[in-house]
Simulated scan of single mutants.
Amino acid sequence: MSNNIEKLISQKAFNNEHHKGLVSLIFVGNWVTSRHQQFFKKFDITMQQYNILRILRGQHPKAATINLLKERMLDKMSDVSRLVERLRKADLVERKNCELDRRAVDVKITPKGLQLLKTIDEEIAELDSCMKSLSEKEIIQLNKLLDKMLDNY
């Protein structure tokens, strides 16, 4: 028998389908986040740090400013400066004052950071497994529905 949200949270009934959908979305979001946290633990980084490294790899060999990182982060509540500092201490990024704007900081991924991402890329399919119960057609539909929800963002 398959799981459903009522069974998973011992809920008898929801007020309506909208409420059930929202609760399900939050539950699934937390489940996926938890899986990601566990996965990245073995690489000694957080999901947010991984997000920064991915952004920097996309910018490579150019640098990115702290503001660019903030704009592109998935978790808009992240303290990007603190995350970058932790990555710098781990020698995964380097930071220096921007030559064009003394108030800005340029951040670049290091070879060690690129290598870590390469290692993670080899195992990242482990995270995708939470989507394995959905067909390609269902994934496309899910993406369309999520995009439609983001129209309210």
Rank of each mutant, 00 (worst) to 15 (best):
Met1Glu: 13
Ser2His: 09
Ile5His: 02
Lys12Ala: 03
Asn15Gly: 05
Glu17Asp: 08
Glu17Ala: 02
Glu17Tyr: 06
Ser24Arg: 09
Leu25Asp: 06
Phe27His: 12
Phe27Ala: 13
Val28Trp: 04
Gly29Met: 05
Ser34Lys: 15
Lys41Pro: 00
Ile45Asp: 00
Thr46Arg: 01
Gln48Gly: 02
Gln48Phe: 03
Tyr50Asp: 02
Leu53Thr: 01
Arg54Cys: 00
Ile55Phe: 00
Leu56Cys: 03
Gly58Cys: 04
Gln59Phe: 14
Ala63Gly: 13
Ala64Asn: 01
Ile66Val: 11
Leu68Cys: 01
Leu69Lys: 01
Leu74Pro: 04
Asp75Val: 06
Asp75Ile: 09
Met77Gln: 07
Met77Lys: 10
Met77Pro: 00
Asp79Gly: 01
Val80Cys: 01
Ser81Phe: 08
Arg82Gln: 11
Glu85Gly: 10
Arg88Ile: 02
Asp91His: 09
Asp91Lys: 10
Val93Pro: 07
Val93Arg: 04
Cys98Ser: 14
Cys98Val: 01
Glu99Leu: 11
Leu100Pro: 00
Asp101Phe: 04
Arg102Met: 08
Val105Lys: 11
Asp106Ser: 10
Val107His: 00
Lys108Trp: 15
Ile109Arg: 03
Pro111Met: 06
Gly113Cys: 06
Leu116Trp: 03
Leu117Ala: 10
Lys118Asp: 14
Thr119Gly: 09
Glu123Val: 04
Glu126Tyr: 13
Leu127Lys: 01
Asp128Phe: 15
Ser129Tyr: 11
Cys130Lys: 05
Met131Ile: 14
Met131Lys: 08
Ser133Asn: 08
Glu136Cys: 02
Gln141Thr: 11
Leu142Arg: 04
Asn143His: 11
Leu145Gly: 07
Leu145Asn: 09
Leu146Ser: 14
Asp147Gly: 06
Met149Lys: 04
Met149Trp: 12
Leu150Val: 08
Asn152Val: 07
